[in-house]
Structures are given as C-alpha cells and as structure tokens.
C-alpha cells in the first residue's frame, strides 16, 4: 500500500489500461480539471498523450463519437469536464449508449466510461453545478460509479474499463485532493458492492460521492454527542448494493440519506424506498433525506451555502429522526 492522492489513483487506472490495451483511446481535455491537482495527469500525458483526442466544444457529437468508436470495438474513456455539459449529450448517453446492447438483442457492446465532475463548486450558479446522477440512474443500460477514496477510484475505474457496458463515472472535484492508501499490486474493485465507511449502531447514513465526506464528518461530531452513526457508501449506483444497505438499516433501525442532487426522485429517494420495501418492520423512526432543495443554484455564497447538504444539515436530520 502507498498513500496517494485520489487524482493520482484515477490517472493510474487510465495509464495501466493504456499499457494493457494498445487500442484503448481517450477523448477530452483536462481530465483532472484546472485546480491544484490537475498536474497529476502528467504520467498519462507523457506516455500516452498520443492516445488522447482533444475535441472541440461539441458535447453531443463528441459523445456520439465515443459511443460509435466503442461499438466498433475501441475501448474508450470520454471526459466531459463539468457534468452540466453532459446535458448537451443526454440523448446520446441515454438513447444510444444505454439502449444499444439490449435493443440489438445483445449483439452490440459499448465498452466506454464517461467521466464528469458534478456538484456545487462555489460560484457555479445555475448552469455549472449540475448533479445529474439520479436523472441518469433513472434510465436503463447505463452503469454508474461514484467512488470516494483513492483506492476505490482506481479499482472501480479499472473494473469499469474492463467491462463491455457503458459506465458513467460521476466524480467530484473536491475529491481529487483527498489522500488514501492504494494497493501497489494490480487490483479491481467490483461494481455493485457498498463499503461501510464507519461502523455504528444507532443510525444508518447512506451518502454518495462528496457527501460521504460530509457524512463521515457529521458522524464524528454526532459521536461526541453519544449518537453512533454508521456511514454506508454505495460506491456504485448502478448496480446498487441493496443488500448491504438494507442490512445496515435493519441493524440500526434508522436511516438518513445524503446526496448532492435535488431531492425529488433523488438517489436518496431510491434508498428511502428500499427501506420502505425491505426494512419497514425494523424502522424505529421516520426516514430523512438530505439533498438540494428545488431551486436553481444561486451564485451568491450564502445562498449556495444554504442549499448545500453539508454536515450541519446532516446532523439536524439525524437528530430529527430521533425526535
């Protein structure tokens, strides 16, 4: 094991895939964004820069190009930058990549990972802050990963790049600078297995992507007040590890969900529905969802702050389920 930045681990997955598969191709600019950790893409750029196509600002056609290439047999990684920009390519993602395998009667494969940064980013306002995960999860045929540790970022990206179904990798820029242990030997983290980020007995908090960091912080603060929270990180949304989530809810008897998307039909709503379907008899209190309220993201810092589902709002929600 070696301690690494999330940004490094992500790039390692791409570099190792490129080493293994001489046909592997990438599309996109600035895979690690423009922040303090952007330079960690160097090992990839130096060795495999010639595999990376820098596209014009044409998200719809670029997505189609990646999908078509994957259908033709090229393993692809397509980076979009801000998740908001993928809304220019929704039709291609949902109605082309998502349906191709099934609609062709299993003949066509789309070995492709789409990478994007979702979420509130301070000042992104109404058009650069999208967290589209539940919207995409609402459609069949698209896998979705949201790793939150360097180990999972590398291992899940490796796994997604090896499989023949299209996968959305919905990432958050705030994770790039987080650090963690990464195995030195080759490994994969299979999709569809949740991780218990903190064990606890009083309440289950299911959080995704950056919200996992908030949930862990909230759990530490709650521990000081005598509430022992378990934090479950599903890591992949499609497929979803319903078993692990239900097991945790049945153990604690309480559930708070946290995600950065809008509450209506959110990932949290799906988890809450699981609790209602499969753990109703074990629930000791109401389920609470912490998410964005339904308002376009305002630029003004205190307004953006007020809609952010951070630790304070999680703690308040946890306490409310005990009231």
């Amino acid at each position: 094991m070696t301690k690494k930045f999330y940004a490094q681990a992500l790039i390692e997955a791409l570099t190792e895939t490129a080493e293994e598969d001489p046909g592997f191709a990438l599309i996109g600019r600035g895979i690690l964004g423009h922040g303090a950790h952007a330079h960690f893409d160097k090992p990839l750029m130096e060795r495999f820069g010639d595999r990376i196509t820098d596209p014009p600002t044409s998200e719809g056609a670029v997505a189609s190009m990646a999908i078509g290439a994957a259908m033709a047999g090229t393993r692809m990684f397509c980076h979009f930058g801000t998740a908001s920009f993928t809304l220019e390519a929704v039709n291609q993602l949902i109605h082309e990549a998502g349906v191709a395998h099934s609609m062709s009667g299993g003949q066509i494969k789309v070995p492709l990972v789409f990478h994007m940064y979702h979420g509130l980013r301070r000042g992104g306002a109404g058009q650069h802050s999208s967290s589209p995960q539940s919207m995409y999860a609402n459609n069949p045929g698209l896998q979705m990963i949201m790793p939150t540790t360097p180990r999972d970022a590398k291992g899940m990206l490796r796994a997604a790049l090896k499989c023949d179904s299209p996968t959305l990798y919905i990432d958050h820029g705030a994770l790039l600078g987080t650090e963690g242990e990464v195995p030195d030997e080759p490994y994969e983290v299979p999709l569809g297995r949740a991780d218990i980020r903190r064990e606890g007995s009083d309440i289950t908090i299911v959080a995704t992507s950056r919200a996992v960091l908030w949930a862990v912080e909230a759990a530490e603060r709650l521990a000081a007040e005598g509430i022992d929270a378990e934090v479950v990180d599903p890591r992949s949304i499609v497929p979803l590890d319903a078993e692990a989530i239900v097991t945790s809810i049945r153990k604690t008897g309480r559930l708070v969900t946290v995600d950065e998307g809008y509450q209506m039909c959110s990932i949290g709503s799906e988890i809450a529905a699981l609790a209602a379907e499969r753990a109703m008899d074990a629930l000791k209190g109401p389920v609470a969802r912490v998410a964005r309220p339904p308002v376009p993201v305002p630029f003004s810092p205190p307004l953006e702050e007020a809609m952010t589902p951070g630790p304070d709002r999680i703690i308040a929600a946890v306490k409310a389920t005990f009231a």
Binding site: G123, A125, G126, Q127, H128, P296, P298, F299, S300, L303
Partner: peptide, 15 residues
C-alpha cells in the same frame, strides 16, 4: 453576489 445585484445575487458574473 449581493442583494442589490442586477439579478439579486442569483446569477453572478456569468449571468
């Protein structure tokens, strides 16, 4: 991002 902004602080520099 202030209250008296043209958009009441909702838009910011890009909008």
């Amino acid at each position: 991002g202030r209250k008296d902004g043209l958009n009441g602080g909702r838009g910011g520099p890009w909008h």
